[in-house]
């Protein structure tokens, strides 16, 4: 504390001296008078040290502010001049290990802070797509490899084929089919040439057993007539037997069993 007071006194002296130096332009008489009168009055009075300390404190504060402001100004000028000369981008590229910095970046934290929805809403998707050369992209895709990786069996098992088929309007599809054109393209001669018509005919005849059918058909017609003749014969036999019984006065109860 005492040192500060001493310093302030010295600074006050310095300031006074500098005020004298700076006031060279003032009339020498006035300077001499003021200095002489001031110094004499200050020195003569007991509170001169206190006043000098107060004065010194003010001047020190002003000096500190002036120095600070000067330093700032000088520094700004220096930085501006330096930046005008130095290419900061090139400097950073040359001396900063960007990969190391990137490795230490917490990308997850960055992404979590980012409003991706807002960012996406600002994207003109149409313009982006318009700039994409889809043909070139598609030409680079190995569709065979993609399809080879697809488990078609699994896909098909998940499909509800019944529901799919039920939605198909088969009638409408069939109506659009030109049956005549389809038939016109069929090579009937080639189809017939591949068929073993003789073999098929043999199999059909063997399966039908034509002789048996002929036998049954003719036999059924003949058997009807034969059954009629037989039935009439039986009735005639009965009639003759009854007539003979009456003729011989023989009761039918008297007849022995015919078997």
């Amino acid at each position: 504390m005492r040192d500060r007071e001493v310093l302030d006194v010295l600074v006050g002296v310095g300031a006074a001296a500098s005020g004298l130096a700076l006031g060279l332009v003032r009339p020498l008489q006035r300077v001499t008078e003021v200095m002489g009168a001031g110094c004499l009055r200050v020195l003569r009075r007991q509170q001169a040290a206190v006043q000098l300390g107060e004065r010194g404190r003010q001047v020190r504060t002003e000096l500190e502010q002036a120095v600070t402001e000067g330093i700032r100004r000088v520094f700004r000028e220096l930085v501006a001049a330096a930046l005008a000369v130095v290419d900061l981008t090139e400097l950073a590229r040359r001396h900063i290990d960007l990969n190391a910095l990137a490795r230490e970046l917490d990308v997850d934290a960055v992404v979590s802070r980012a409003d991706l929805d807002a960012a996406a809403s600002r994207i003109d998707v149409g313009a982006v797509v318009a700039r994409v050369d889809l043909d070139a992209v598609a030409s680079q895709i190995d569709l065979d490899a993609l399809v080879a990786r697809v488990d078609l069996d699994d896909v098909v098992t998940r499909l509800d084929l019944d529901a799919a088929v039920s939605r198909v309007d088969l009638d409408a599809i069939v109506k659009r089919v030109d049956i005549d054109a389809v038939i016109a393209r069929v090579d009937v001669e080639a189809v017939l040439a591949r068929l073993d018509l003789a073999g098929i005919a043999h199999q059909v005849i063997e399966a039908i057993d034509l002789p048996e059918i002929l036998r049954e058909s003719t036999g059924s017609v003949a058997s009807e007539a034969v059954r009629g003749v037989r039935a009439d014969g039986v009735q005639a036999d009965e009639a003759v037997a009854r007539f003979m019984d009456r003729l011989l006065r023989r009761s039918r109860a008297d007849k022995p069993a015919l078997q």
């Binding site: 003749v229 039935a231 014969g233 039986v234 005639a236 036999d237 009639a239 003759v240 015919l258």
Partner: peptide, 16 residues
């Protein structure tokens, strides 16, 4: 009509 199964009479036998 089924066959009577009994002895045949003179008419049917004569026809046969």
């Amino acid at each position: 009509m089924s066959a009577p199964g009994g002895h045949a009479g003179v008419v049917t036998r004569s026809l046969a």
